[in-house]
Design a protein around this nucleic acid. Structure first.
Lengths: 170, 170
DNA sequence: CTAGTCATGTCAACAAGGCTGACGTATTGT
DNA sequence: ACAATACGTCAGCCTTGTTGACATGACTAG
């Protein structure tokens, strides 16, 4: 539909105008605001922010994960993460237990209260995602994921793939 | 490929598991970091941040735009935007001229220096977008844009569509 | 013309959430 | 025994967002 030069490895190369690429860039910008809008609204009522949401999300996804592990996925410093974890633990949303095999590690879990918040956040985010998926159709959804995956940094793609091929935490 | 119930208006409804939706959510999260990574690297050498990038991008896209207009697109307070604009103007990257028809308005343009920075930022971002598009293929690209568009808030979609159907600023 | 509204700029104060650097304490591996 | 690792924490700094208040000049409706 839009090919011209032939790539090196049998790959068909696309001819892509700056215009087409710019549209993609702007779509990412505007869509990401929608993507975070609903959880942000819920969180702001609770004196939490997006950083708390991320921590909660990934603890939910990988129950028992360690602090170091979370650090690698979130890509922030331990001081930043610690500030968030401290408040979540203090508020009884997250539990931190000393590792059995390696006592230096702390294993993180959501408490019932934490799981309840996680559910309300991800319900809101899934609702929007669901309606976007429905509006666009199944073929579009597959393409959506392909492009996003190709856009990730290598390291983040590894984290992504490791997560995605794992059963849901719930 | 994945339909089941019939929608109201001839629309085919998709059956979407929480699992599928969650993958999309995580893909957005990891991809957005890649999306901003390259410009962020360039900007951090110049004591600018993502906020400056956004202002520069949209001034480039809509030369002569007003402050109020930019405010609506960026969705921040005028105090936030003003802080950024002030530094860009002081550093000679952006020019602000009194409106001809309405003298209350200020029309914003990139200077040569500002345009040069814009180019280096968008080159970096387009390179990544281009390689993602190539890796995913043209059908995937169409789907990518469709899903993102459906994910936007109504107001943001209006801004997006107005921009996208406009010739490139360069 | 006058009153009200609008576009913009600015000051002050505050919060979230990044960052660096430094230090301390267990615990583990060599 | 010693070095490396996992974690927690203190202090301080930056960017970028917020609210609230106030000022100026320029339009606009009555």
């Amino acid at each position: 539909m839009n090919q011209t030069p032939q790539g090196t490895s049998g790959q068909t190369l696309l001819f892509l105008t700056d215009e087409q690429l710019r549209k993609g860039i702007e779509a990412m910008f505007f869509a990401y605001r929608g993507f975070t809008a609903d959880p942000d609204r819920i969180l702001s009522d609770l004196a939490y922010g997006r950083a708390h949401h991320r921590a909660i999300h990934f603890i939910h996804r990988s129950p028992g994960t360690t602090v170091n592990n979370l650090l690698a996925i979130l890509g922030v410093t331990k001081q930043s993460l610690n500030r968030v974890l401290r408040s979540l633990i203090a508020d009884g949303l997250v539990s931190s237990t000393v590792g059995k095999r390696d006592k230096r590690e702390r294993h993180l879990h959501l408490t019932d209260k934490g799981a309840a918040l996680e559910r309300s956040l991800s319900d809101a985010q899934r609702d929007r995602m669901r309606s976007a998926y429905r509006a666009a159709g199944p073929a579009a959804v597959a393409g959506f994921r392909q492009v996003l995956e190709a856009m990730m940094d290598d390291e983040m793609r590894h984290h992504y793939l490791a997560l995605v091929d794992k059963p849901d935490g719930r």
